[in-house]
Computed example of a mutant assay.
Amino acid sequence: MVSDSGIHLHARGEWHEPSLTLRTIRFQKGLYAQFHHLYVLQAGTATLALEGEEPRSLQAPTIAYMPPQSRCELHMAAGAACFIIGASPQIIVDAIGDRAESYALRIFSERPWFMAEPDAGAVNELQPLVAGFVRELGDPSRASWMAIAAYMRLILMALWRAAGTEAAEQRGRGGGASVLQRYRQLVEIGFRQHRSITDYARELGVTTDRLHSICRSELGRSPVQLLHERVVQEAKLRLERSARTVQEISDGLGFRDPTYFSHFFKKKTGFSPAIYRDLARKSEASTVTLSSGYADWP
């Protein structure tokens, strides 16, 4: 794990008081080039200019979330007040964790999200979490990696719910949901337990042949291939974006020992975990990307 003494290389937290003049803030700049950013406008107006898109006018109280690929700058009008927080991919990995909601949060965290209209309720719910994040970073006697990751987890959950994603997913679990969709939800919850395809089919109320046919016809892969792809994708993300050891990653993914995990990973990717991590680090400053993002699993 990265030591807490390096937390300011992985997180930023700022409160901007109202000013008499227009201010411009560039999010992905220098140290913050690969950060995920959250902007909470509490008073006044601002304009958010995303690269390749028309500028967005923002009216307080409102929220904007930008992943690293959303190159943008913010023009705050006189009198505007806001919080700005940012987190590195390593913080995001720890914040999202490996629980039932984790895959949905990963997908959410890869896409920009803007509140459709001012929403005081959502901003008021988020404000103490963001203020706590900023306060934690601003206190030299604290500034804990664990605390920052915990705040970021709660913030992402609040954003996900404010976006209505949780409610939409709950509706999708009803009788009209496809077997494939429900299989993927079950895999997300249970892929670390290395359950058999027979177990998944039984829980879905279909035969293994039927599940195999659905996965093949919809995605061109067998249920086992989809399950293994999910494990490999999680392993890649952990190797690329966290400082956990290979053994810690192996344990977290439910493998009985690191050697078995290494053999599995090399069979699926052509690289040992250690070599893959080394290649990922060497490619950070180049245009080569070994894993394109959280949404690689189909």
Rank of each mutant, 00 (worst) to 15 (best):
S242F: 00
L22I: 04
E117Q: 14
H37T: 15
F83M: 03
G30D: 13
T287C: 09
A122Y: 09
A167R: 11
L253E: 00
T62R: 08
M115S: 07
R182K: 15
E248V: 03
A60N: 03
S196A: 08
V232G: 02
P118Y: 12
R99E: 04
R216D: 10
E169G: 12
G172W: 10
L186T: 02
T165W: 01
A87F: 01
D257H: 10
L154A: 09
L74V: 11
C82K: 05
Y200C: 04
A60D: 05
I275V: 15
A150V: 01
A43F: 08
S250R: 01
G44D: 06
L126K: 04
A162V: 12
A274S: 08
G132A: 10
L227G: 03
E229G: 09
G79V: 01
G44Q: 04
D278P: 03
G220C: 13
D257M: 10
G220H: 15
R99V: 11
Q170H: 07
A116G: 05
Y276M: 01
E53P: 01
F264W: 04
R182T: 02
L180Y: 02
E229I: 06
L290T: 08
S109G: 14
A60Q: 00
G30A: 11
Q247Y: 04
L41A: 12
R195D: 14
D257R: 10
L126Y: 07
D278I: 00
I92G: 04
G172M: 02
R184V: 04
A243Y: 15
